[in-house]
Amino acid sequence: MYDFAYHKASSVADAAAKAKGNDDAKFMAGGQTLIPTLKQRLARPSDVIDLAAIADLKSIAAGGGAVTLGAMATHASVAASADVKKAIPALAALAEGIGDPQVRNRGTVGGSVANNDPAADYPAAVLGLGATIHTDQRQIAADDFFLSVFTTALNPGELITRISFPVPEKAAYVKFPSPASRYAMIGVFVAKTAKGARVVVTGAGNGVIRIKSMEAALDKAWSAASLDGIAVSASACNGDIHGSSEYRAHLISVMAKRAVAAAG
């Protein structure tokens, strides 16, 4: 770990003020990506601005046809929330399946979404449910948010404050973990929403992607059988030692069917 200046922000405004004009500053939410990155000397921020003390970012609320998670809501708190389990059980189950207990007790939804790891779970739910990302400056629709690997629509110094997930009619998330890291080698989030079906894949490529051919099939008839014969091109997928692009493309079909079946 290289030296850096540590700041504990007292409010969203305080955090933004501390980051202002400093491109080498980093916000820290749960730190579950940032801390290992620092320890391996893969990042060298001048300043780390810790968001942990900002109490009003931790809220979890359901109502008005949506579940709204404060950016600093931990995976464990989302997984355990009766409101989330009742309104969008798939979201609670997704949170329950992230990492291990240590990661779930520290890691946050805002941190995960802002980081946009191409194998992270939360971005699949954000895009799959057509969520809205609220920042200290504006609102961003999920469809406009995830740009590329570790890249989002957030401006430098812009801070996610909460994420609002519309309650779908049905949804489920099924992932195939990497045998080594247990990150999603393929994760598929499916949702039947008022605006139509969504099928979102994480782990395959440079970030979350929608499989529109599958969405169209599910719009016609919501059943796993509707996905029979719909193949995903291997060219949409990356490959590594644990999963070639061809294998990953195959897993998308398998996991999508399982997710639809699980959603009921």
Binding site: S178, P179, A180, S181, R182, Y183, D240, I241, H242
Partner: peptide, 13 residues
């Protein structure tokens, strides 16, 4: 070395 960490080296759990 591709499997230089637990991200790529699959230990049994």
């Amino acid at each position: 070395l591709i499997t230089g960490s637990y991200m790529d080296y699959a230990m049994p759990r």
